[in-house]
Nucleic acid binder design. Sequence first.
DNA 1: ATAGTTGCAAAAGCTTTGCAGTATG
DNA 2: CATACTGCAAAGCTTTTGCAACTAT
Lengths: 160, 160
Amino acid sequence: MINVKQQHMVEVRRKFIAFLEKKGQRKTAERFLILDKIYERTDHFDAEALYHLVNRQRHHVSRATVYNTLELLVDSGLVMRHQFGNSSSQYEKAYGYRQHDHIICVRCRKVVEFCDPRIQQIKTRMGELLHFKITSHELHLHGYCESCQQQIDLEGSASQ
Amino acid sequence: MINVKQQHMVEVRRKFIAFLEKKGQRKTAERFLILDKIYERTDHFDAEALYHLVNRQRHHVSRATVYNTLELLVDSGLVMRHQFGNSSSQYEKAYGYRQHDHIICVRCRKVVEFCDPRIQQIKTRMGELLHFKITSHELHLHGYCESCQQQIDLEGSASQ
DNA sequence: ATAGTTGCAAAAGCTTTGCAGTATG
DNA sequence: CATACTGCAAAGCTTTTGCAACTAT
């Protein structure tokens, strides 16, 4: 199990190295540290959380570098950027992680991932129809999760 | 034709009035002015653009009021809020305007609207599966529009 | 009358930038 | 060794907030 994980990280780093070389960018320790930290987690995070995560033990990496590296990683396709609410950008690792979309509870802000093959059909069809070469997409469904819905029902029947 | 438009605005204002009354909010001149300005245009705009639009002739409405009213209008369902890039929130009128999604050129930032019935199927299916009561969605396709794609092809064949 | 709204300016929050020092290729 | 990157702090932008004045109900 651990070997599979390590193998995966080797592959991810290789991808990043290839990207940096293609772009003529340097392979700095900070960039790899950030990459590793991002791939340690499976959930969403924002730049500030990543900044603290990276600086938890010993290391020091500035916010500027965190933002700069996130930009590179998004460009390289190794990290995805999302804007859920009106708050800050959310990021998540993207490589070797199945393509998925998000359903967000408008009340408790919980985010659940899902997959639906129809989205691929839409991308193909609309790309043809509108003459776009589609490279990516983002689908957000908004609504009330089960527990929030229950609470709302309770409140509704209790008062007024 | 003009009558149809006027009729539509009467309906929109009525909707807004109903919302304000339900929420116990006041029906101020500023709020209706902002609503009218929004419904005069069919494209997307941000809060700053709306602020200037509202203050073009005579009237004076502050940014705070613009933001405050946009919030109300989004809550009432009369206006939709989108986050396309990393820039500011984009808004557009929502009532009586067919449901649609957006395809965005990552190079020139052009935004085109489209409809696909499959999105409704996804909403219904995922709502059931994940026990969410879906209220809305946002689908963004990202890619290269025809003209940007052509320019890229030219650049690619010209240099290196 | 009185509670909600407005306008203003200041503050807040996220992200970017300029510059001097540092490290990579 | 030249150039690109980092860290820091300051600036930039969008959006929110506090407060006094105002106004719809």
